[in-house]
Design a protein around this nucleic acid. Structure first.
Lengths: 224, 224
DNA sequence: GTTACCCTGATTCTATCAAATATGCTCGCT
DNA sequence: AGCGAGCATATTTGATAGAATCAGGGTAAC
């Protein structure tokens, strides 16, 4: 693992956890000092995070932690839904028995993590989905899902982690795996879309609540 | 315009025109020399081109011009179709009379460029589509379209520029504008999708022809 | 034939510095 | 007081040198 990867991971975590607040200016020199590294990996990391939508950059002006309005959340989830609709039928089309077993393994890992540690659970959840989408053999579409993952999970971690959220994820995964095993493309797609929509609704609901008055440090505010 | 932008534009052009061949190794130092600049803008440009799918990079190994197989073309167009289906109805929902006029202007510019210079026509075509998609107010989805634009146009320039191709683009634009003006979301979406599918078919057809024996320097080969 | 080792080229990273750019402020003018 | 021109400063962007790290190929020993 390279320094750049570490910087990306650190910055993602800091943004997700609020150590870097939405709208905060990100100066390369300050970040390099803070992360005890040079400026080169920081510059590269900012590019990656910009592509992921966590950071907003303007030429000759600098970079900021992206502020996300509720409409942005809706739009991101609608983009993901469109790509899910594209990918899941191809997953069914191409999946082999070996890959299905691999998915079962990843799901087992996820369920094991769920009962222990939320951050491990999220990592396992990401592994599960990245691998799932990779089966569709559409690298560019899978890249869209991977790129927006950090953004979505950032939101979910800050807003959508109500009690039972992870348990419902487990339910969704299991139902999806059943449909995939049956090679039922329509059912699998519907399940995946429903699961994504449910996550979106959770987020929007919490975002709405928050806007209504909570003082939690929040990723959700309308752009100035 | 910054040096980084110039490097990105130059490298895009070189890849599109074949000065940088598919599969070719891209070493930062060599590119910096060739483009008479430092390594800093080159490194940044490679990140951008990687996000666009023109370049493939592996940690600690370096970067290469991406090789594109016919399946990749199909997949990229299917991704774009999914996002078009998402965006066009929102374009209809949000478009104002002023924006419609702006689109008319851009279309006029495109048609003026068509009769003169292919490269200007492609730039104008990009302007038209970028602006069109921006109207849907879904920044992340529009970013997917923008990012894959270079890739698609790279292919089209190398493979799909048969006689009448640009004329058919003009036809498509006009029909699309009529449907948008009528606020007919279904028709507009169908037209946009059909236009994209048509471009894809053109490309695949030419790619197939080429694979069958032509000696043209080609972007299309199966990965090793 | 296989394994271990080294060597080479390239990438990656650090550490600076110079140049270009944006922004805010002061100062003078109306 | 209000306002704009010009300057000062901070930051980004670009350039450069050199160390550290890594991948891959070749060689030699086993």
């Amino acid at each position: 693992m390279t320094t750049e990867d570490r910087v990306i991971a650190s910055m993602r975590r800091m943004i997700v956890e609020g150590a870097l607040a939405p709208g905060e200016k990100l100066t390369v020199a300050a970040l390099a000092t803070r992360l005890a590294t040079g400026v080169t990996p920081v510059r590269a990391a900012l590019k990656t995070l910009e592509a992921e939508g966590l950071v907003e950059a303007h030429p000759n002006r600098g970079a900021w932690v992206r502020r996300l309005a509720p409409d942005d959340i809706r739009n991101i989830y609608r983009l993901r839904r469109a790509v899910i609709r594209l990918l899941i039928p191809d997953v069914i089309r191409y999946i082999s028995d070996a890959e299905l077993e691999e998915l079962d393994l990843l799901e087992a890992g996820f369920e094991a993590a769920v009962v222990q540690d939320a951050s491990a659970a999220m990592a396992a959840n990401e592994d599960f989905h990245i691998h799932l989408f990779s089966i569709a053999r559409n690298r560019d579409a899978a890249a869209v899902m991977s790129r927006s993952w950090a953004l979505v999970e950032a939101l979910r971690l800050r807003l959508g982690f109500g009690p039972g959220r992870l348990a419902r994820s487990v339910e969704s995964h299991r139902a999806l795996l059943v449909a995939i095993r049956r090679r039922d493309a329509a059912a699998a797609t519907a399940l995946a879309v429903a699961s994504s929509d449910q996550a979106m609704e959770d987020l929007l609901h919490r975002a709405g609540e928050d806007k209504a008055g909570s003082r939690t440090a929040l990723a959700l505010r309308h752009a100035p």
